[in-house]
Amino acid sequence: MVKKILARSYLSLILIIMYAPIALLIVYSFTESTNIGTWSGFSFDLYRQMFANEEIMEALLNTILIAIASSVVSTILGTLGAIGIFYSRRRMKRVLNGITQIPVLNAEIVTAISLTILFVTLGITFNFITLLIGHVVLTIPFVVLSVMPKLQQLDPNMYEAALDLGATPSIALRKVIIPEVLPGVLSGFLLCITLSLDDYIITAFTRNNSFSTLSTYVYGVTAKRGALPPSLRALTTLITILMFIFLLLTNFRKAKAVKN
């Protein structure tokens, strides 16, 4: 019992520390005060300011757009890649597994500048596609790494059985393998979204200047403002709420799955 309390309080402590800065922003999103630390009455004005601020809204939209686009591309390419890698011959498998590790282990800034050099060498004006490629490079290994374990759990005979029963390879793939690895794919997809939303360095290096995301926007304004601009506090609240709604949904999904 004591152990349980101890364990739980340790967990809570870490969580409290982790969420403290976010909580601070949320609390101060309900006042107009420009400085954190001085409370100047309750107000929803920052929310109005945030929604009226076109730059923030555009950045938010762009962030979501690139997160979804890059995650979809990564998930498709990565899932097929993972299946391909899994059924490759041993040597090829080792090579492919090896290169999958590169973007994970590589320093993000090195990945970013290497892509910059590539695009500049090719003489490309940076655009959405370059940014997309940057994010896909960043996220794709995590799809492969999420799908791989599910492939290992797969019964190798099922695919053969499907073929023996007359399915074409692609039907066998779609009806047998894909459904089995789907949880891994989903988990990879969510990991992609998370990483893409969080990213600053790759975005900063591979975007066109006219395409600003939340991270580049925030970096720009903190560089010139010092403290965070007040309307970003409201934005933090908004994202946190979305985040918890998502968490609850996942919770329900899992609870349902357990029941069934």
Binding site: Y19, L24, S215, L235, L247
Partner: peptide, 26 residues
């Protein structure tokens, strides 16, 4: 609940630059 582990990852949804700046302000 397995959900608790997600709590440790969710801050990443609030962008890393934003979180870092918030930490500094805190």
């Amino acid at each position: 609940s397995g959900i608790i582990v997600l709590l440790f990852i969710m801050p990443m949804w609030i962008n890393f630059v934003l979180r870092t700046a918030a930490t500094r302000d805190l």
